[in-house]
């Protein structure tokens, strides 16, 4: 039963779903390649997850359990809004729990808890073209992908090293999928890049405004570009999470006052909550300004 009168299950009409489904199947068959699709205007603005929403609406069934996160958190307004959209238009069960979800729509993060084979990640992608900042013309970037000519990106990374001593990309860090296509991992922090590699879950990416979908099948090689003498690395924090004490998750810096006092806490709210529920605890106190 549909909860919003006058609209189909999960909002999209069946013809649109078929078109997106066909695009997704080709995306899976050609890992990392951006499949153009007839992206529709959605009732949420472009740039606010319309690609992810169209992908989720196309794959969603009545028995799915949906989790929506933004910046790792289930409670950010955009995540709440998208979850509400599907609860209203599809009537599906929603959850905050990473383990219980069959579909996880995300903006900017991959959950800390490892995903399973039964799960599908749906990424909201603002700018799907990894070469876009180096070459804005799609007519040209399509050719470069066809030729697997990624020299532009290597030069850019090399110039970073020459200039800064290291690669200056901290998020949306480019990856090579299955040894063939250069791919933008949506702007997840590079901290999350290693999770893309050989992940048991199917990973789908939707860019509504740019009208493309792409995919990483389960157990697919995903390499973050690097150089032998400048291997890919991710950031770690000296401080553990002040709430749950974990030392291995991505931390948000929370500014507490105007005197420099702040705290580092998990960006993945479900992960943090679950750990706290299991009795883990952090310092619970801010880092005083002078301590840093």
């Amino acid at each position: 039963m549909n909860t919003v009168a006058g609209y189909n299950f999960a909002y999209l009409d069946e013809q649109t779903k078929r078109m997106i489904r066909r695009a997704l199947l080709k995306a899976v068959a050609i890992p990392g390649y951006q499949v153009p699709f007839g992206s529709r205007e959605m009732p949420l603005p472009y740039g606010w997850g319309t690609g992810g929403i169209q992908v989720t609406a196309s794959i969603l069934g009545r028995s799915d359990v949906l989790k929506v996160i933004d910046q790792g958190s289930d409670d950010t307004t955009n995540a709440v809004n998208i979850r509400r959209f599907f609860a209203q238009t599809a009537g599906v069960a929603t959850t905050d729990s990473t383990g219980e979800a069959s579909i996880i729509q995300t903006r900017h993060r991959i959950p800390e808890k490892p995903l399973g084979e039964h799960q599908i990640m749906v990424y909201q992608v603002p700018l799907p073209e990894p070469l876009g900042r180096l070459e804005p013309r799609e007519a040209v970037t399509r050719k470069l992908h066809a030729l697997a000519d990624y020299g532009l990106m290597h030069v850019k990374l090399y110039e970073d090293i020459a200039r800064y001593g290291h690669i200056a990309s901290t998020y949306d860090y480019p990856v090579l999928v299955n040894g063939r296509y250069l791919m933008a991992p949506s702007p997840i922090p590079k901290f999350d890049n290693p999770k893309l590699h050989m992940n048991p879950a199917l990973q789908l990416f939707g860019a509504g405004r740019e009208k493309r979908v792409y995919a990483i099948p389960p157990y697919t090689r995903v390499e973050s570009l690097d150089f032998e003498d400048h291997p890919f690395s991710v950031q770690r924090w000296d401080e553990p999470c002040a709430l749950c004490g974990t030392a291995d998750s991505f931390l948000d810096e929370v500014v507490l006052d105007d005197a420099g006092g702040r705290m580092f806490v998990c960006s993945d709210s479900d992960y943090c909550k679950t750990r706290q529920g299991a009795g883990h605890t952090g310092s619970q106190s801010p880092i005083p300004a002078e301590a840093t």
Binding site: P45, Y46, T76, H166, A168, T170, Y171, P189, R209
Partner: peptide, 29 residues
């Protein structure tokens, strides 16, 4: 303008994960 307005205004959405990464890089630099 529907595309342009959406994308310009999406900058209002939280970006603190990416910002945190930039902050970390800037401090290092």
């Amino acid at each position: 303008n529907v595309e342009a307005s959406g994308f310009v205004q999406h900058l209002k959405l939280p970006h603190y994960v990416d910002f945190q990464s930039e902050l970390e890089l800037l401090r290092k630099m």
